[in-house]
């Protein structure tokens, strides 16, 4: 998906409070607090207050209210009680967790590709560019293309049948069993290249001496990868997995909206879609807010893990 968090998080240079302290000259801390510093952060603080803090507080508060946007009445925990008894919400929640299974899959495939590219295989830059391209494209345009491509008699199945593989030509978007996995497939299609680029960059930055020494010791290619290379880019792998987990749990609206509209029979709904549908299409604002708080809680756990990773002393060294 083209959400910024992913691009951003990995794009970002290391940060850790500890590293930060090291860089600052000791004298600087004694300097008087300066007025200009406060003025400089005002626009950003206002922007983040307006764009994050205010809506977050409002959504939590309004999740205890029901009604329309302008006529809210306090209902306590009723919205939460309702959504956890609502099959469609439970289905949406489980679907998000099903999509979580794409994360280890992507990680393994991306790692495999990255270590192969890291060997300096001929044409590696072309491979890298092609595999990475989907990642930056708009999910709406991609999703639309797939919604046509994956029709039962669409491009993919027509091709499969023409090469004698009609037995695997499933109804990708029109069956309750397949729809959510098709969404997952499109997510993998788009995100895989990101993993490859992140891992490859980490691998390319490893000091060559270690590899050299291992090879002199007679390590096989496989040992070299599993014992030497992969462990050294552990941090990059963890970051990738956390950011992808956040993606599939809370950034897949576009795919579902364009590919299946949550169907057939709500079978491919996800929490974001549930929020959108209840909040905007059906006017059940209370349910939308309660579901949003659930998303927020789940995301918070992952954000906390993410912050811990960032703050880890070795984060600065390796990532």
């Amino acid at each position: 998906m083209t959400d910024p968090a992913l691009v951003r998080s990995s794009a970002a240079a290391p940060w850790g409070a500890a590293a930060d302290e090291r860089v600052r000259p000791a004298g600087a801390r004694k300097r008087r607090r300066q007025l200009w510093s406060y003025l400089f952060v005002v626009p950003a603080v206002l922007g983040m207050g307006f764009g994050f803090v205010f809506p977050l507080v409002t959504v939590v508060r309004n999740s205890f209210y029901a009604g329309s946007f302008y006529k809210l009445s306090f209902v306590g925990f009723d919205n939460y009680r309702f959504i956890f008894g609502d099959d469609v919400f439970i289905r949406s929640l489980t679907n998000n967790f099903r999509l979580l299974l794409t994360v280890p899959f992507m990680t393994i495939v991306a790692l495999l590709v990255a270590v192969i590219l890291n060997d300096g295989i001929r044409g590696w830059k072309v491979y890298r560019s092609s595999i990475f391209l989907p990642y930056i494209l708009p999910a709406a345009g991609i999703g639309l293309t797939f919604s046509v491509f994956l029709q039962f008699n669409g491009g993919l199945n027509t091709f499969l049948r023409s090469v004698g593989l009609s037995s695997i030509a499933a109804d990708w978007l029109g069956s309750q069993t397949w729809a959510i996995w098709s969404v997952g497939g499109v997510v993998v299609w788009q995100q895989l290249g990101f993993g490859v680029v992140v891992f490859l960059a980490a691998l390319l930055s490893l000091p060559p001496e270690v590899t050299e020494a291992a090879r002199i010791d007679g390590a096989s290619w496989w040992q070299l990868q599993t014992k030497i290379h992969v462990p050294q880019i552990r941090t990059a792998i963890e970051f990738f997995m956390v950011t992808e987990a956040i993606t599939v749990l809370s950034w897949v609206f576009t795919y579902v909206y364009v590919l299946t509209l949550g169907g057939p029979g709500n079978s491919s709904s996800v929490m974001e879609f549930y929020i959108w549908k209840n909040g905007f299409a059906q006017g059940s604002v209370g349910l939308a807010n309660a579901a949003a708080v659930v998303v927020l809680l789940i995301a918070s756990v992952l954000i906390a893990i993410y912050l811990r990773l960032r703050a880890r002393p070795d984060a600065g060294a390796r990532l």
């Binding site: 950003a44 994050f52 959108w276």
Partner: peptide
Amino acid sequence: TPLLMGSIAAIMVPPVVLVVPMFV
């Protein structure tokens, strides 16, 4: 430090959580 930590956390906040109140 809170501003920096807040920024890092905010990067990951899913927009769907914010969109209903922002709409109003």
